[in-house]
């Protein structure tokens, strides 16, 4: 019962975030919303594991958390530097980056 409530709360929050994803005027609003959406998906998968009585779902949640973080960082890096880190196009780039 309590996990049904948790799943419901997460779904409500995810719908709000979807609206922000659709509206969000800048690309960073969308990145922020999709990152939060990913966090809530991780929690939702965990709750779903409890609901269906299959705790193996937690492994999937852990994997999703890892991929969500790396995906967000990759997208942000792309928007910030315009590339994924290869220095071919920018010979003058400093060494520290």
């Amino acid at each position: 019962m309590m996990f049904v409530v948790a799943a419901f709360a997460l779904i409500v929050a995810m719908v709000c975030l979807l609206v922000r994803l659709y509206v969000g005027p800048t690309v960073y609003d969308r990145v922020l919303a999709s990152n939060a959406f990913g966090t809530q998906t991780v929690l939702f998968i965990g709750v779903l594991g409890f609901l269906t009585g299959r705790p193996d779902f937690l492994d999937i949640a852990l994997l999703y958390a890892l991929i969500n973080f790396i995906g967000t960082i990759a997208v942000l890096k792309f928007f910030r530097y315009g590339s994924m880190g290869d220095v071919v196009k920018r010979p003058a780039k400093s060494e520290g980056e």
Binding site: C16, V19, A36
Partner: peptide, 13 residues
């Protein structure tokens, strides 16, 4: 926890 999650999402809106 669920309440805070919803509040955070509403805040984003």
């Amino acid at each position: 926890g669920g309440a805070f999650t919803i509040i955070g999402a509403v805040g984003q809106l």
